[in-house]
């Protein structure tokens, strides 16, 4: 059986979240780069979703409707999708520069020189704007993947509390047992001691902490870190952060700074 056949056969099991072990890890890794399997997966997820409707209708008790509407009222308005940065911006600046040149033909010599200077500075602005757009696009890709993770119907939230020596630290892990994606958002973290860094741990059924990335918080003590996909994110018990040598440890050795049990 070719490996592609193997992955195509795993897609229906993956859509039910029935994969485990090596099958789960291999499929997740393959899915990243395979449009065909992504399409298969989406089709089977839709089939899986509809199995739920076969359970039959059970009318909920009379008072529940009011409680649901009240709870939605308390939850506030639905967040709106964000817009992408406008791509036309550098083009508009370039057009402005060209317009400046065209005007120059009609102008006197000194005016021409002034216009030329202006064109050069406009070109620099265009380059700066293009760099800025590239950086924004990079940030957007990151923000979008976090946003998609937050919006995914199966994503879960686990709150991490600050432990001694960082009682002021706070953290949240948003994780998806289906895609094994996870993001840590933390604040109130001090600068790690020289030569050391913060390391994230996922503790699942095996009870053995699995390393899930090393990071340094920003100067404001905040950080957003995407965790690598690890199998234990399918059924985590605890997320934790400890202080470790900057290169990371295979098992926690330093003090635990943040920890939260999956409720």
């Amino acid at each position: 059986m070719s490996s592609m056949d193997r992955f195509r056969e795993l897609a229906p099991l993956a859509a039910l979240h029935a994969l485990d072990g090596q099958d789960l890890l291999d499929f997740r890794e393959h899915l990243q780069g395979c449009a065909e399997c992504q399409a298969e997966m989406a089709a089977y997820e839709e089939v899986a979703g509809r199995i739920g409707a076969s359970a039959g209708v059970v009318p909920p008790p009379a008072g529940l409707r009011d409680r649901v509407l009240a709870a939605a009222g308390a939850a506030g308005a639905a967040p709106r999708p964000t817009r992408a940065a406008p791509r036309w911006w550098p083009a508009a600046l370039a057009a402005a520069a060209v317009a400046g040149l065209a005007l120059g033909v009609l102008a006197t010599r000194t005016q021409l020189e002034r216009l030329r200077d202006r064109t050069v500075s406009l070109q620099r602005e265009v380059e700066r704007a293009q760099q800025e757009v590239a950086q924004l696009q990079e940030a957007l890709v990151e923000a979008r993947s976090v946003r998609d993770l937050v919006a995914h119907p199966e994503s879960r939230l686990t709150v991490l509390a600050g432990m001694n020596p960082s009682p002021a630290a706070r953290g949240r892990v948003i994780w998806n047992p289906a895609t094994l994606e996870a993001v840590l958002l933390a604040s109130g973290l001090g600068k790690a001691p020289p030569g050391q860094a913060y390391e994230i741990w996922v503790i699942g059924a095996s009870k053995r902490p699995v390393p899930a990335g090393v990071f340094q918080p920003g100067p404001d003590g905040r950080v957003v870190v995407s965790l690598p996909r690890v199998e234990d994110t399918a059924r985590p018990g605890t997320f934790a952060v400890s202080i470790e040598p900057a290169a990371g440890s295979a098992a926690p050795t330093g003090p635990i700074v943040l920890a939260g049990a999956v409720s």
Partner: peptide, 21 residues
């Protein structure tokens, strides 16, 4: 209520979406 803005009708039926949740 919170995520209705993200529901994409092209990706599936509403009942499948709600059953998954």
């Amino acid at each position: 209520w919170r995520q209705a803005g993200r529901y994409d009708p092209l990706r599936g039926r509403p009942e499948a979406w709600m059953c998954t949740m």
